[in-house]
């Protein structure tokens, strides 16, 4: 094995300068839980590892009407954070069902996004909350909607000289309810067979002002179910409307068969899980509207 270099700079500028110099030959290290496997299997052979651990990129904070989640925050930090619990319950739920505690204490938000698995558990709730990603490079900063970040399995628009440093979300409005449902073969340490996040934000008359439905593990990237969202937009939901919308969500899914489940099973589960997620989100949004 050729000698691999490692650095853990104390300033983001130094990390960005190294990434600018080495590009794709340098790999960013956060929790390393995927990186170690890929290096061992020979999928990745970086010349340089740039560890983010000294950069204090793990802050979770409220900034005006936005929530800022540092890319280095672990699943465990997100799970324990009061701001996440108060404003992003569907994200918290996804963190609670992610792997087990020892992996949650290492695996990071940024790693989950950059690895770009179609089954990444944090992506459906982040899409449902309209998250943006902040990409830094020596040349400057880009802010992109998360929906524009992924281009395929393991593929993103992140340039070789860029580092994902932060996820930013608008504070969900009053009257918002959200739900994340993961279907896996076990409650822990399982890769999602299908995952669904739904978010409903209700107006004063109980009408849906914002509907977001995101589906994991049923397409090359996590996808939004746009037709289902549109069917809810502007209407006061009832059980029938939620069921009809859930039926439309299947159109966004183009699942494949793999060792975890067949294409047919995944396709059958999408409307079922979307209906359950919508019902829970609706119930939570009405409760939030009543107490908001």
């Amino acid at each position: 094995m050729s000698e691999m270099s490692y650095m853990a700079p104390e300033r983001l500028e130094d990390a960005l300068a190294a990434k600018a110099e080495h590009g794709a030959h340098a790999r960013v290290v956060a929790g390393a839980t995927d990186l170690i496997l890929r290096m061992r299997d020979g999928v990745l052979r970086p010349d340089l590892l740039i560890d983010l651990r000294r950069l204090a990129l793990d802050a979770i904070e409220l900034d005006g009407d936005a929530l800022r989640l540092g890319a280095y925050a672990t699943h465990g930090q997100l799970l324990a954070d009061p701001l996440v619990a108060a404003h992003l319950p569907a994200l918290r739920q996804a963190c609670s069902e992610f792997a087990g505690p020892p992996i949650r204490n290492r695996g990071t938000l940024g790693g989950n996004l950059v690895n770009a698995s179609p089954a990444a558990d944090l992506v459906p709730p982040l899409l449902a909350y309209d998250a943006c990603v902040i990409l830094d490079s020596a040349d400057g900063r880009r802010e992109l909607p998360l929906a524009a970040f992924f281009t395929g399995p393991g593929q993103t628009v992140l340039r070789p000289d860029e580092i994902l440093t932060e996820v930013r979300l608008p504070l969900p409005p009053a009257g918002t309810g959200a739900e994340f449902i993961k279907l896996g073969q076990r409650r822990s340490m399982a890769i999602s067979v299908v995952s669904v996040a739904a978010r409903l934000s209700l107006g004063a008359a109980g009408e849906v002002q914002v509907a977001r439905i995101a589906l994991g593990a049923v397409a090359p990237t996590v996808v939004r179910a746009a037709a289902a969202e549109e069917a809810l937009q502007g209407h006061a939901p009832d059980a029938g409307r939620l069921r009809a919308a859930a039926g439309l969500a299947g159109g966004a899914a183009t699942p494949i068969s793999d060792p975890r489940a067949s294409r047919e099973y995944r396709a059958r589960m999408v409307p079922v899980l979307v209906r359950r997620a919508l019902e829970a989100a609706w119930s939570a949004s009405r409760e939030a509207a009543a107490h908001g």
Partner: peptide, 8 residues
């Protein structure tokens, strides 16, 4: 608690 195999 962490997995020692998952720490460089």
């Amino acid at each position: 608690p962490v997995n020692a195999c998952m720490v460089l």
